[in-house]
Design a protein around this nucleic acid. Structure first.
Lengths: 314, 314
DNA sequence: CTGAAAGCGCTTACAG
DNA sequence: CTGAAAGCGCTTACAG
């Protein structure tokens, strides 16, 4: 019974199938071409809305190049890593974009050893091309703005321990203090993890201080917003009593009261550029380039002149 | 040169490869098994942070079942649809979760005609299993709360025209008014698209009214928050002069001033349950079930007693 | 119980 | 220029 169809008849059948809207199976093509035209994007925590706009940038660029996008959500759990390492070793994707500060591993086997291109966005990992914002330069902008307003006593809400962005922002903060002739260790530091709750806690610690900073710089908008909410609820005026600066430029920073002065991360561009870097690595064997993007300071209502020092000696 | 390796030697090599951490190629397996263990999730707009938590719910459930997750971002552009329709017809995914009110099509060829299971989340499409919140019941809860506070004059900020959730919420709003003996057409209606800007515009229109509603119900938190920001900036007191209710229960609704009374959508559960419905359809041929989830009303600071009517006849 | 063969659907390289 | 064959890496069904 098989092979009873003549080649020409077969050709006509194929043409008819085409007209009807036949789509060749990707499964055969993938096996034959040894590629899937799919990129794996590994995010530490998909619930973080900060990633949404970056993902859009990634997707825009991938669509333009005919690639698809698989999401690997680590959900901040290390045991989520092996699954995606396996995916890479199984050749289920052509390349990887990493948002995670560490390379996912499966019992010692590292994702980047599978022989497919890997690039990172918003993080730096030795040996891998990256795209990120220069956190030190951003912090310098923030401090320049606060110094110009007359502030001399500062608080800093930190990011997660070991997070490269958090480290860069803090370093920039301390460097600016030193450059201005102030002692970096005289500033108040409150621990944080970029999320709301830690901003609330920082606010409580601020309120408990006898001699409060006149300006607080938070390593994320979420923490800055939760801080503002906490201290204004206790009757503190922003920016009259304390100026607050955030980091990220999330959409909501414009809809809180007062509106938040913050560093605007170019999220769409981070996604697009990161994808471009990866696609270059996919298309050629040339050494991949890394890129640093600028992040402007958006000056809004939450920062103002430093309050006059009230009777230093009573 | 080839085939010079004896079978037993070959076996030993294979064992060694296993020990070294060899991962079978997914490409061969996919072709052979005619499945990819990947689900396509089509979202209308990836930048909307509302989806982030739902995606997490989906991913949690998919990971537990050994499936991967491909994102199809329509970015609210119809010309983004064909790409994902092709993906489905090319058998690149085993199933589809749709967040979009319309079925993506490629020159008349509809995605659901490819013969793979499709389920919808947050939307209803005839013939497809769905998981969503009962918007009518949610609106009834909102109105019950506002009636109990003495409100009789209402404003409603609508969602996108044709959006099934927006329609359900508005229907519930009007039904509650009628049930309370009020004329639904006497309420103020302002157009919206769930996004910030339309809430700002609704706020402007509210401010321009001579006789303002004492309670405003917005079909999304974003619009409610932007509305609050706009009218408080003009000196209107919330909730003393106007009560405001949102819909969604996004994290930020707790960090605006005043905190927002809103319907809390069970986003993680929506994602998980939607995925369960899809996985059931993938695993068996039995008729897929649909599910409606409850969404509680979170009563916060933005709603309060209706203001006393000031000298109706001067 | 073990091992060789067939076949999933494509694409590429080769023969006619 | 056209058409048949080989082979991508797996799994399943079959022969020994």
């Amino acid at each position: 019974m098989p092979d009873q169809v003549s080649p020409s008849a077969r050709a006509r059948v194929m043409a008819a199938i085409q007209a009807t809207g036949y789509t060749p199976s990707a499964l055969g093509r993938n096996l034959r071409s040894q590629s899937t035209k799919i990129v794996l994007v590994v995010v530490p925590n998909l619930a973080n809305p900060f990633f949404a706009e970056i993902l859009r940038g990634i997707d825009d660029e991938l669509v333009a190049s005919g690639y698809g996008l698989v999401i690997g959500n680590l959900d901040n759990l290390p045991d989520r890593e092996p699954r995606y390492v396996d995916m890479v070793f199984a050749r289920q994707v052509d390349g990887v974009l990493l948002f995670s500060g560490r390379i996912p591993e499966d019992s010692g086997r590292l994702m980047n050893e599978a022989g497919i291109p890997v690039a990172t966005v918003c993080v730096k990992i030795a040996g891998l091309p990256y795209v990120m914002v220069n956190d030190g330069v951003a912090s310098a902008q923030v401090m320049e703005h606060l110094f110009a307003l007359g502030h001399r006593r500062f608080g800093f809400i930190e990011g997660p321990v070991g997070n490269i962005n958090a480290i860069g922002r803090k370093k920039g903060f301390r460097k600016a203090l030193k450059k201005a002739g102030l002692d970096p260790d005289a500033a108040s530091y409150w621990p944080g993890d970029f999320m709301f709750e830690s901003g609330v806690e920082a606010g409580r610690q601020f309120l408990a201080l006898k001699r409060r900073p006149t300006a607080v710089y938070a390593a994320s908008d979420h923490m800055a917003i939760a801080f503002m909410k906490t201290v204004t609820a206790a009757g503190v005026q922003i920016p009259e009593e304390v100026s607050v600066v955030g980091f990220d430029g999330i959409e909501f920073s414009e809809f809180v009261t007062p509106t938040l002065t913050t560093i605007s991360q170019p999220r769409h561009a981070l996604g697009r550029t990161g994808t471009q870097v990866l696609l270059e690595a996919l298309g050629s064997d040339c050494r991949p380039r890394s890129v640093e993007l600028d992040a402007p300071l958006l000056i809004r209502e939450s920062t103002g002149p430093a309050p006059k020092t009230k009777r230093r000696r009573a």
